[in-house]
Design a protein around this nucleic acid. Structure first.
Length: 454
RNA sequence: GUGGUUGUAGUUCAGUUGGUUAGAACGCCUGAUUGUGGUUCAGGAGGUCGCCGGUUCAAGUCCGGUCUUCCACCCCA
């Protein structure tokens, strides 16, 4: 028999890792619920008609497709095979694994539009799959934690997202990050201002790389995609605007303030900037960054991204406002804003910064020894009494050597061992050993309960 | 999808110009200690050298392919 393995880009999570992952997820969930978000889960699989075409060409290639059940070749012919995988795939596969949580959410909203009370605030914590090439911080199966407010175009919701991000990272003790914010309308207005209206798509793609490849390479790339040298000159002036967040808003107002998109985008940004710090306990490095573009094409307003500052890692949280997410499924005029936390990356960052609470390798507080049948009745009574009192208790399942039973408690990090041998069983007492100090006392059941219930 | 990189015991890694029976540390098991773990000491088990093929008298070592790991690009969380 050959040794088993895992599919590329997937991982097992042992008890130790699950303890840490649950710590992250529990904290995020608590904050989500404190903000009034309601839980939602959707299936791992969606119909390919729901998924394809939503993430661009590249995204479609990254979808994991599920082969049809039964004789999946029955509806194909030799011609399909000859025409290549593009024409063959739809005939042998009509389902795929979800690529993110936003599109399934949009599908859900459209299907349940008559039952949902808007504005609808939902959160969703589930794995997603991408047939991508794995590397640092990139997996083929990973979790997203999404929170969206849908059915309102109020900028107040965007502000709530800022506070939500702040509170999530505060609860995790991760303060070492920067929240970047921009607005797609501003990028649109800039493309109009520099004389290349309608080209905000390529503009976003290029601008997004600014901190990676530098201004000159960005300009080169833009010229290659048809931007005139005059527009590029104007652009480099605009994106080199420096100063505080408020100063940047002011300067931009002078340039693109008369354009409808520019005015509205800057209003939103300044609303958020103005109110964000009104929260009492706020400690947030919020940066209005003109070069933040974000890839996903459905964003139309405010956009967010969180990056750790001292750990080399891509974005750990991203989101923004979209005006017409459900339009692709035939429901128009539903605006929303949302955020997605990448817990696998947050895990990596927190591990590197040593931010997890001390590991708790076991929930069990007491291990009851097993000496065999004579002591069993009393041992089981103690076991059940301790459990009834809310104390997490185990009994060693077989009459093994004491060395082995103590070793088990030690390895599992169980703090107390209750020794119940013939002597203890006959006078109904328990020898309770404290595994940390090494000391032990012979006690009655009541005394044990008093000692352990704190 | 493109380019580079990695693979030897449960884990982390050695392994000489190709040459006897592939090693270490940690971990694991047993005993010293028949009712007591963490320390110590003694002993033991554990390997299809990722897989398939090729070169050679001889391959862990060289060559080809393939899978995998990690990294970068693209894109993204």
């Amino acid at each position: 028999m050959s040794k088993p393995g895992l599919p590329r880009g997937t991982r097992d999570f042992g008890p130790e890792q699950m303890f840490r992952r649950n710590y992250i997820i529990d904290n995020i969930r608590k904050v989500f619920e404190r903000y009034g978000f309601q839980p939602l889960e959707t299936p791992s699989m969606e119909n390919l008609s729901v998924l394809t075409g939503k993430y661009g060409n590249e995204g479609d290639q990254l979808l994991f497709k599920v082969l049809n059940s039964g004789d999946y070749l029955s509806k194909t012919s030799g011609d399909d095979y000859a025409a290549g995988s593009k024409s063959l795939t739809p005939k042998i596969s009509n389902k795929g694994l979800r690529y993110d949580l936003t599109v399934p959410f949009a599908r859900y909203v459209v299907m349940h539009q008559n039952d949902i009370t808007f504005p609808f605030k939902r959160y969703q914590i589930q794995p997603v799959w991408r047939a991508d090439n794995p590397q640092k911080g990139r997996y083929r199966e990973f979790y997203q934690c999404d929170a969206d407010i849908i059915g309102t175009d109020s900028t107040l919701s965007d502000l709530e997202i800022v506070w939500l991000i702040h509170d999530v990272y505060k609860s995790l003790g991760l303060g070492d990050f920067e929240l970047k914010m921009n607005n797609r309308r501003i990028l649109t207005a800039i493309s109009e201002y520099i004389g290349e209206p309608g080209k905000e798509g390529p503009l976003c793609v290029a601008i997004d790389k600014l901190d990676k490849i530098g201004l000159e390479s960005v300009i080169t790339e833009l010229e290659r995609s048809g931007f005139s040298s005059k527009s590029c000159e104007l652009l480099s002036e605009v994106i080199q605007i420096k100063g505080s967040n408020e100063e940047k808003v002011d300067k931009l107002m002078g340039l693109i303030g008369d354009l409808p998109n520019g005015e509205r985008g800057l209003q939103d940004v300044s609303f958020i900037l103005g109110h964000a710090s009104s929260k009492k306990d706020i400690q947030l490095k919020l940066d209005f960054d003109l070069t933040l573009a974000r890839g996903l094409s459905y964003y139309t307003g405010t956009i967010f991204e969180v990056k750790p500052t001292s750990v080399k890692m891509g974005s750990i949280t991203g989101g923004g406002r979209y005006d017409d997410l459900t339009g692709i499924f035939g429901l128009n005029g539903v605006s929303g804003t949302g955020i997605s936390f990448g817990i696998d990356r947050i895990y990596d960052v927190m591990l590197e910064l040593n931010l997890f609470p001390e590991e708790q390798s076991s929930n069990t507080k007491v291990l009851i020894t097993n000496f065999g049948e004579k002591e069993l009745d009393f041992s089981l009574k103690v076991l059940n009494d301790l459990r009834s009192a809310g104390i997490s208790t185990e009994i060693y399942p077989s009459n093994a050597k004491m060395k082995k039973q103590f070793n088990y408690a030690n390895k599992r990090g169980i703090p107390y061992v209750a020794v119940i041998g013939s002597e203890e069983a006959s006078n109904q007492t328990i020898t309770l050993k404290d595994m940390v100090s090494g000391s032990q006392d012979q006690l009655g059941l009541k005394e044990v309960l008093e000692k352990l219930v704190v």
